[in-house]
Nucleic acid binder design. Structure first.
Length: 489
RNA sequence: GGUCUCGUGGCCGAGUGGCUUAGGCACCGGUCUGCAAAACCGGUUACAGCGGUUCGAAUCCGCUCGAGACCUCCA
């Protein structure tokens, strides 16, 4: 089935604003670059949403059988934002505050980030290159851009020459901005700028006295510009043009626009065939962000340590919650929504276990293949995980009906459905069944306890059976009386 | 101020011209049960407002109202 389905994948391309059929540049191989975090603090849940969404993309491409090279950078060089060079870079600022070296800051938060990836069951990218590890590559790209006449040096800094560039290329094609209009749109014009043109951006920035990180370059000591690291690293690991470039929607302009300019300006080629942008995670309708203070940390929510919610949620629940919305839509995070996801996910994962132990029939009473195909169709339509989940719940309903003897399934279909449900739930959505797995040592104990309760019930000794039930409840174990047997969780 | 996006039932959230009852949760009814919970089955509630195009619009166009994003670091 995968062989037939692999050709059906469509991806929404920000560059064209349409869904396009996906065909990799090199057959069977996919190159994907995603902009990673700047590690001057711990990533919050909003950041995680983007990484989880691209994890979904990565997982589905693998599921379809592609060999995927997934590059996600780690920004460990701070970037001076103000063109006058007055503002401190984010990493340097954090370093000063915590009285650590910049790379100690980055290391510290990278350890946490890596841990979060494990907790949230993100597949590790093929490589996570760092900006500071690729200063030479960045310098070389800048040199190429200068050779091509699209950059100029001023006083130890190098700027990209947008005006010259747009004579040969279309600056603004990704974000739909027109350079002529940009000037009026800009809120704060910096009159003191060294730049020839307001839209020019720094490729290399001359060092300040108080910079904590400084590198040597042909133009003197300084720092690489914000955008150049992605161009350098994507080129190095994926080539001048690769299949997919992803990132958060807030990076579309100027970051990704400038990446395109740098690639075209150096190699003459556009960096990526497909640009994918993941939308923001909202809290009460507003983008989760540090400045608004409406963020919480991924670690806090799984520990129940945030004031925003009165209980802890499993990482699985957060993942499922996010998968219930499309990656290109904003998603509002509320406690009610999380509670809904928690229950729904439990029902979904439990049904997989039910299916595993189901009784076969000679024939299936419903079209199993059609349900499975709906899984692929959903994901092939621009990774539409919410539709996939709706399809999975169709299967859940059928499985429960089979259990009740109202539908039936053949052994062959059971095998197919189980395999594909596991595939989509575990491998594609990246959920785990951990929550349903019981402690090996506790198992026989619980068997005994429930047996005793069953005896009490047989004797109509309700006092004893309720004592056991209530006692277990206090211990955090809920007893579920089924038709034929009693289970617990 | 400029550019753009969005406004779906109690909540979250899909769907872009013609039965999608999307789906999840909640709620109501039922089955089961010693009771309760859990499971399961069934059901109700919607397309911001106004106008237009069309045989027909949640879906296309216009206007109004509202929300948000980007233009500065941001996933």
């Amino acid at each position: 089935m995968k062989d037939q389905k692999i050709k059906g994948l469509k991806i929404y391309n920000t560059l064209t604003g349409t869904k396009e059929g996906f065909t990799p540049i090199h057959e069977d191989y996919v190159g994907m670059y995603v902009c990673g975090p700047t590690l001057y603090s711990e990533p919050h849940m909003g950041n995680m949403r983007t990484f989880i969404n691209f994890d979904l993309v990565y997982r589905y491409l693998i599921y379809l059988g592609y060999k995927v090279k997934y590059v996600r950078n780690i920004t460990d060089a701070g970037h001076i934002t103000n063109s006058a060079g007055e503002q401190e870079d984010s990493i340097g600022k954090a370093a000063r505050l915590e009285q650590l070296q910049p790379l100690e800051i980055v290391y510290k938060y990278n350890v946490r980030f890596q841990n979060l990836q494990k907790i949230y069951n993100l597949l590790p990218p093929t490589i996570e290159p760092t900006a500071t590890g690729h200063i030479q590559e960045q310098i070389e790209i800048i040199e190429k851009i200068m050779e091509n006449g699209f950059a100029y040096e001023v006083n130890g800094s190098v700027y990209f020459d947008v005006q010259t560039y747009k004579k040969s290329f279309n600056y603004g094609e990704l974000s739909g901005r027109k350079v002529e209009e940009l000037e009026n749109e800009t809120r704060d014009l910096n009159a003191q700028s060294e730049k020839r043109f307001f839209a020019d951006f720094a490729l290399w920035k001359k060092a300040n006295q108080n910079d904590m990180q400084i590198w040597r370059s042909p133009w003197g000591d300084g720092n690489p510009g914000w955008h150049i690291e992605c161009t350098a690293m994507s080129t190095k690991y994926l080539g001048e043009t690769f299949d997919i470039h992803g990132g958060g929607l807030d990076l579309k302009f100027p970051h990704h626009e400038d990446e395109i300019a740098q690639s075209c300006g150096s190699s003459g080629k556009a960096p990526a065939k497909f640009w994918m942008h993941a939308n923001m995670l909202n809290v009460n309708g507003k983008k989760m962000s540090k400045s608004l203070g409406n963020f919480f940390l991924p670690q806090e929510i799984v520990e129940g340590a945030t004031d925003l919610f009165d209980k802890a949620y499993a990482p699985n629940v957060l993942r499922f919650f996010m998968m219930q919305s499309h990656y290109r839509s904003t998603l509002d995070l509320t406690q009610d929504a999380l509670n809904a996801s928690e229950k729904g996910m439990a029902r979904l994962t439990e049904s997989i276990e039910t299916l595993d132990q189901i009784t076969f029939a000679d024939k299936s009473s419903f079209d199993v293949k059609a349900i499975v195909e709906s899984f692929y169709d959903a994901m092939n339509d621009d990774f539409n995980a919410p539709i996939l989940i709706a399809g999975l719940f169709d299967a859940v309903k059928k499985i429960n009906l089979i259990k009740d003897g109202k539908e039936s399934i053949s052994q062959k279909d059971q095998k197919l459905l189980l395999e594909e449900m596991k595939g989509f739930v575990l491998d594609v959505l990246g959920l785990t069944l951990d929550g349903n797995q019981k402690d090996n040592r506790l198992n026989p104990v619980m068997d005994l306890v429930l047996e005793l309760r069953q005896q009490a019930r047989a004797n109509k000794d309700w006092a004893t059976s309720d004592l056991i039930r209530d006692g277990l409840k206090n211990a955090g174990i809920s007893v579920k009386d089924g038709k034929d047997n009693t289970s617990w969780q």
